[in-house]
Design a protein around this nucleic acid. Structure first.
Lengths: 313, 313
DNA sequence: CTGAAAGCGCTTACAG
DNA sequence: CTGAAAGCGCTTACAG
């Protein structure tokens, strides 16, 4: 590939001058500028971002880690972040972890070695060391759906889990349900545990204790929509009807939730916006050479559709 | 961050020696090796991959471009590719384009500047210049679902579109349908057009011409599952029943297609495997300093579920 | 306005 | 086995 010296030679100037016309930071005479531009076009020169990164000590890349790209919530979060990053001239290194600690730690190492300027995490395992590994190397990180951070350097964008869980339980309670359960994936994810806690707190306020599905729960709140959809599938294969036999509530309001064949009662969130905002916060921090150290909460309204109804009598 | 010289100084050796113990290429005495290892641990040294890339002239990164991360087919393709890339020590720069030419060309530029070693494309617009931009700079590219490549340097992993389309039409024809249509997104994607062609060829073999939905088609083949699912939603909102009033066929067999509430008749493909294989092919080519220049076809069997039935009488 | 020089953090022959 | 030196392709003071 052609380099700066190739175009400098061709234009009959020094490489500093070529660099100056490309960056536009230092004024260059019209004549020289034209010659350089032509040489760039002729040689189809594209600056080597790696060399620039080394010199600038900035990769202009951010890392994005999600548990599962196949879950539309995370896909939208990643897409929103990627789009925002690109708009700022940053590349997005995206990785999925299945919420497994070894994968998370490997991702952190890769991000450190590649010197990403910031990282966005869409979801991590409970007690993950990923954030602190990054933070300790002065890489700003913002995590979506985390809760009260133990580490003040962290950036956090949370849905209003306690509020949403209260709304879910109130809705179910009003319908007459008294045997309610919460279901999350077997891999314990940070956000799932937070929601479980909020759910149980809302139950307790009504003098209720959680009931498992196998123990005859008549309503189930799920960690997220994908899980709710999988559970509806399982229940209906067992011959149970939703919501006549059991009510099911999701979380995220992925596009599919509104589908005529799903009509899932769920909690709305705006994953694309969370991704965009996470990039905004973390890139600003990176550019200022500081951590994000900021938490914000997004509204998370309950959307009642048709997977919730009165309990069987 | 600590650098090689920090470690060297601490261990009391030259940076060449530190490099040698890290890379393990050149033998180093046990004693020195221990001292260096300790210095690395003490300083929590992580090599700067950017500096290494500059020297090695390899970014150990691949680019992945998909139209839409939100479509589980592309998400699985990207996830499969990303997982395979990570296993080989490559990072994945993932970008989504909405199949819009400007985004595609911007992605190509970003990949060139960042000197990715290879790129995987999950889908592109009809007549996209992305592949040739990359190919011309000696970056190997493999595209999934492309058809006969115009450019011999391209790597291609295709589903068996002609075979699948014949199977779809045969299935529908046998059920009694004579008014069949094909639907793709308004953004013309390479793979959509290929499928349309295969569909129309299969129709022609039976002396039939395509019929639009609005013109009273009784069966619709869709570019992919996501579109099929959206169309089912639209039809059912209009009060039509699937399959009693109109049969709908998808393509991809995303996990959701098997859901009890969808039961979509579709064509099976293995997106994760396509992604993995694409990485294998392109990384091998990159390492050998050549193009992929190879096309392979994956089996694409029809999976009949419950969105297809006899036409209304 | 333009160019020579130093340096970003590595790797890799090449001497010793 | 170990180290000094050159170089990957840029950017950025600093002279002129």
């Amino acid at each position: 590939m052609t380099t700066l010296v190739d175009v400098a030679r061709r234009a009959g100037v020094s490489k500093s001058t070529v660099s100056n016309v490309i960056r536009g930071s230092i004024p260059v005479s019209q004549d020289v500028r034209d010659r350089v531009q032509r040489a760039i076009a002729d040689t189809r020169y594209h600056p080597n971002a790696i060399a620039r990164s080394l010199k600038e000590r900035s990769s202009t890349a951010i890392g994005i880690v999600v548990p599962d790209l196949t879950n539309p919530f995370y896909a939208e979060l990643a897409a929103g972040a990627e789009r925002a990053a690109n708009a700022l001239g940053y590349a997005a290194l995206i990785t999925h972890t299945d919420c497994a600690a070894p994968n998370e730690s490997e991702a952190a190492h890769a991000f450190i070695e590649r010197r990403v300027d910031a990282v966005i995490v869409g979801g991590i395992s409970l007690g993950s060391t990923l954030p602190s590994m990054l933070l300790d190397r002065d890489i700003p990180v913002v995590v979506a759906s985390f809760g009260e951070p133990d580490d003040p350097r962290l950036g956090v964008i949370d849905p209003d889990d306690p509020g949403a869980m209260e709304a879910i339980v109130a809705h179910l309670y009003d319908l007459g349900h008294r045997r309610l359960g919460f279901v999350s994936h077997h891999l314990r994810e940070q956000s799932g545990e937070r929601r479980r806690l909020g759910f149980e707190a809302a139950l307790e306020r009504r003098g209720l204790a959680p009931v498992k599905l196998e123990e005859g729960a008549t309503a189930i709140a799920c960690h997220n929509d994908m899980l709710a959809i999988a559970i509806i599938d399982r229940l209906e294969r067992q011959g149970l009807r939703v919501p006549e036999d059991v009510s099911v509530v999701g979380y995220d309001d992925i596009p599919l939730a509104a589908h005529r064949r799903m009509k899932l009662t769920t909690v709305r969130s705006d994953a694309v916006e969370m991704g965009r905002r996470a990039v905004e916060l973390s890139v600003n921090a990176a550019r200022a050479g500081r951590h994000v150290a900021h938490r914000e909460i997004q509204p998370s309204p309950l959307v009642v559709r048709s997977t919730t109804g009165r309990p069987p009598t």
